[in-house]
């Protein structure tokens, strides 16, 4: 580990790690397991790659449970075993306009991609968030990106957000590719509007995962033809038409 920075509160952590020798595509993820964990917690933890530069690999993590809490309190120079890049990331057609739909921590896989995209003016971003904007790395995204963020703190806000989501998807559908990442209810609503608008969209899903390499069969997600596919190797990014989101 190289270092750690907090954003907005102690529950939002940017973890900086020594850069690995590989290249990753946006949406791919890594598995992390601090050596100090011993037998407990047992599983490694999966995190999408937020940004990779020659200087560092950066992960954006919200503290939500035991693993992330322990990671937050890891010693600055401690050893963390990491493997990746894992899974299938987003296909980015750089010549086409993009509409990025991000819900909360779903912003993570898009940060590095937006910063290195050759045509940021072709990117539109709709960002939904429940906590204050100061927790999320929105400001560092290129100014040429058309950003729109919506705060949801009441059930009414959620209805409004769903409406805007629908509108943006419908208007954008004929123009380019939609990329979405966020919590399951967000993806479910997004998927519904995507299918109604006949849009081209890729969704990145989050599931509970043990191994990260396709062996444990814990992270499976149901497809339209009834298959149970491992998110870790067949995803986490899927074509929106492929999935049954429950």
């Amino acid at each position: 580990m190289l270092g750690m920075a907090w954003a907005g509160s102690r529950d939002f952590v940017h973890l900086y790690l020594e850069p690995p020798g590989w290249e990753a595509s946006p949406g791919q993820f890594v598995m992390l397991r601090p050596s100090a964990w011993g037998f407990d917690p047992l599983w490694p933890r999966p995190f999408s790659i937020c940004e990779k530069t020659p200087e560092y690999l950066r992960l954006f993590i919200q503290v939500v449970g035991r693993g992330t809490s322990l990671l937050r309190s890891a010693a600055p120079d401690s050893e963390i075993v990491l493997w990746g890049p894992l899974g299938k990331g987003f296909r980015i057609p750089v010549q086409h306009p993009l509409l990025i739909l991000a819900g909360g921590m779903g912003i993570a896989p898009f940060v590095g991609m937006c910063k290195t995209h050759p045509h940021p003016e072709r990117i539109n971003l709709l960002f939904g968030h429940r906590l204050g904007l100061e927790h999320y790395p929105l400001d560092e995204l290129p100014g040429k990106i058309r950003k729109e963020s919506m705060h949801q703190s009441t059930p009414e806000d959620l209805v409004d957000f769903s409406g805007v989501l629908q509108e943006r998807i419908r208007d954008f559908a004929p123009r380019g590719e939609i990329l979405a990442c966020g919590p399951m209810p967000f993806l479910r609503v997004g998927q519904r509007h995507v299918l109604e608008s006949n849009a081209r969209a890729q969704l990145s899903v989050e599931t509970r995962m043990a191994c990260g390499v396709g062996a444990c069969l814990g992270c499976v997600i149901k497809t339209r033809n009834g298959e149970m596919l491992q998110t870790c190797v067949h995803g986490p990014v899927f074509d929106a038409r492929e999935l049954v989101l429950q």
Binding site: L42, W43, A210, G218, V220, G226
Partner: peptide
């Protein structure tokens, strides 16, 4: 096809 999810849960030193 196996069982519905969640199918796995972490427990102290186990799962």
């Amino acid at each position: 096809a196996g069982n519905p999810v969640p199918r796995i849960v972490e427990t102290p030193c186990g799962m």
